[in-house]
């Protein structure tokens, strides 16, 4: 069997694919966080909890209502988006003029409550969620066996990220969004309903988290803590990528997933800290992140 530095190649490829799968989740989640921060000035600590609820919704849909994966892929993000809009109207809209700290504390508290609720209902142990029909099994690529579901997650998240990028950078709605992010008051004085856009942006951002949650459900155990495990790394990804560029955020998410995967093979001891080491280095060299605009 062929090897690289004593590592069997199939194992290496396997970790790389797993890294890309994780990177796909990082990309989708950090994209939502960056868009929300740009528009609402809120560091959305509830993002991980809403990702978890996306996965829980998928599981509950199947368990209680018999609604399958493909329907939940649409229904869960939409419901999470609506939950987000309610959160924005009830809680967040009062915080925009205050220091970032208030938004962070509010959404952190919210995350604890949502996680607590689901922990109370379902306990901490994860629930298994079956891989949907058609995506089970492997594809033989010749040099490795690629699990179909992992390929699907990578592909789906790439498509979602590209659509988001196109919407923000190339459409009229996206121009409104960029303008409102840069100068909300003036944008409103041009006749654009900025408060409505802010509300929809939050709904969209957390909807992305919900979608990531459904995609994650068959790939991991669906449990109340799956969000809080992930979100800290995702915040590090946002810090490394910087807030300036959509594509930058996506590329950063995928690359850090890959780097983590490589670390698991070559230096397993640092694999869970490598993202934070990179964050520290990036902060020393470029405090506004790799793709961030220097203020």
């Amino acid at each position: 069997m062929s090897e690289l530095f004593g590592i069997p190649l199939p194992a290496l490829y396997g970790q790389l694919v797993l890294g890309l799968v994780n990177g796909s989740f990082y990309a989708m989640l950090s994209l939502g966080l960056a868009v929300i921060f740009g528009m609402l000035n809120i560091i959305n600590f509830a993002h991980g909890a809403l990702y978890m609820i996306g996965a829980m919704f998928a599981w509950m849909g199947l368990e209680y209502l018999g609604i399958g994966y493909w329907w939940m892929l649409v229904l869960a993000p939409v419901s999470i988006g609506i939950v987000g809009i309610i959160i924005e109207r009830l809680l967040l809209q009062w915080l925009y003029k205050l220091d970032h700290l208030y938004g962070l504390l509010m959404t952190f508290g919210l995350a604890l409550m949502l996680e607590g609720l689901f922990r109370d209902l379902y306990g901490v142990a994860g629930q298994p969620y079956p891989i949907p029909e058609g995506l089970t099994g492997m594809i033989n690529l010749g040099f490795m066996m690629l699990p179909k579901y992992r390929a699907w997650v990578i592909l789906a998240s790439l498509v979602v990220c590209l659509i988001t990028w196109y919407m923000i950078e190339k459409t009229r709605l996206g121009a409104y969004l960029r303008a409102a992010t840069e100068n909300p008051r003036l944008t409103q004085a041009f006749g654009i309903n900025v408060p409505l856009m802010v509300m929809l942006t939050y709904g969209f951002g957390v909807g992305l988290a919900g979608l990531a949650g459904v995609l994650a459900a068959p790939a991991t155990q669906v449990g109340p803590l799956m969000g809080s495990n992930l979100i800290i790394v995702v915040f590090a990804v946002v810090v490394i990528g910087g807030m300036g560029s959509i594509l930058g955020t996506v590329v950063t998410g995928l690359s850090l997933g890959l780097i983590e995967g490589l670390a698991k093979v070559f230096w397993p001891e640092v694999s869970s800290t490598v993202v934070f080491i990179i964050m520290a280095i990036v902060l020393m060299i470029r405090p506004s992140g790799l793709f961030g605009r220097q203020q």
């Binding site: 009229r172 121009a175 409104y176 960029r178 303008a179 992010t181 840069e182 100068n183 003036l186 944008t187 041009f190 006749g191 654009i192």
Partner: peptide, 18 residues
């Protein structure tokens, strides 16, 4: 109030018709 995140033409086309 020219937006740096928008091109010249996007700036021009930004305000909706009233």
């Amino acid at each position: 109030g020219i937006y740096s995140g928008l091109s010249c033409e996007e700036n021009l086309m930004l305000p909706p018709r009233v």
